[in-house]
Nucleic acid binder design. Structure first.
Lengths: 68, 68
DNA sequence: TCTAGATGTAAAAAATATTTGACAAATAGT
DNA sequence: ACTATTTGTCAAATATTTTTTACATCTAGA
């Protein structure tokens, strides 16, 4: 599943936002956030939207699909 | 789950692309595509990317999140 | 009218995402 | 050296998405 993300980068750009803090803002578990940040699996579109919303970014700014 | 999409519109703009044809291009079942088009549930980000790619659009052009 | 193609719905099984709980390692501060 | 915080991992349970199969409806064309 080749989906990259800039979550780690965005967390630090937004005042060292911790994984747990972000997880709470997004309404998800810390483990879920870790897995997504590490691209272990593909999140739900709904969750992807909520993550992007926290940073005030669009989906494409946070997640990049590498085709093939 | 308030996620709108323009799949139906995009299908017809792309030469009356049928649900089954799109499903095959995307590598998914027709029922899955129907459910997503009808916004019955939130697809995987991976799948959302593949759908957008078929139309040569970005994610945000195909799916819109209505916050709250 | 009959047939074929496109769309819609439904229910159970399979696959995948998410939660819960617990533990380990690294870092920073006291 | 100790404690607290952050990050990472793992495994089992739960929730959600996706598949499979089957049937119903509608429209267009022969």
């Amino acid at each position: 599943m080749p989906i990259r993300n800039n979550i780690r980068k965005l967390r630090f750009e937004n005042g060292e936002l911790t994984q747990q803090a972000l997880a709470e803002k997004v309404g998800v578990t810390r483990q879920t956030l870790i897995a997504i940040e590490a691209a272990k699996y593909s999140p739900t579109l709904e969750l992807a939207f909520r993550i992007a919303a926290v940073f005030g970014k669009s989906l494409d700014d946070v997640f990049q699909h590498e085709p093939e």
